[in-house]
Design a protein around this nucleic acid. Sequence first.
DNA 1: CACCAGGAATGTA
DNA 2: TACATTCATGGT
Length: 208
Amino acid sequence: MKNRIYEMYERLFERFSYQYWWPAQTKDEIVIGAILTQNTAWHNVEKAISNLKNSNLCSLSKIHTSNIEDIKDCIKPAGFFNQKARYLKNTADFFIKNGSFSKLNSYDAQTLRKMLLSIKGVGKETADSILLYAFDKAIFVVDAYTKRLVKRHNLIDTLSYDAIQNLFMQNLIKDAKLFGEYHALIVKNAKEFCKSKPLCEHCPLLGV
DNA sequence: CACCAGGAATGTA
DNA sequence: TACATTCATGGT
């Protein structure tokens, strides 16, 4: 398999090696972090998660049963705390209602994706992050960095989520580990290089 | 000081 | 379908 999409992965991996995403200790924490990081810098999410842990609220069951005002107090550093507290509640309710990860994991990826998307507060990127990193489903996550990447490299003539996701999934082996590291590498590279200017001289994707 | 960060829901045309 | 607005804190 030799194509531009996979070649970019090789370049990124050569430069940055393993990222070991998702950075979390439990599956619950992955889901919680996926919601808290919506349009929010990760280091602020870490503060929010740290607060949740200190209050013993960093699990879906705890979020399900606890007072929403207590959740708000913990997650304020992550911003949008009013709606994110509701989103966390909605998501926790979903998992309590529909069962554990191992039970939900018996659904195929697309069925589970639709279920997750029915939660108010879970859009495509959040759903796919949960599918990939908490359920180990081979679903490629598309974020703002990914869109910027395909735009700068003229990889496709649209910026629609589905089209970009298909571009990656159709040009890669369907492997959750690969997808997970690739997405992490795109984020890593975006933070490291080329924040405003495309393709600076140190970017590992030059010439791909 | 302005601008952005690992988005999603809602409203408008 | 395709944009525009709103949500909010904290770093640069």
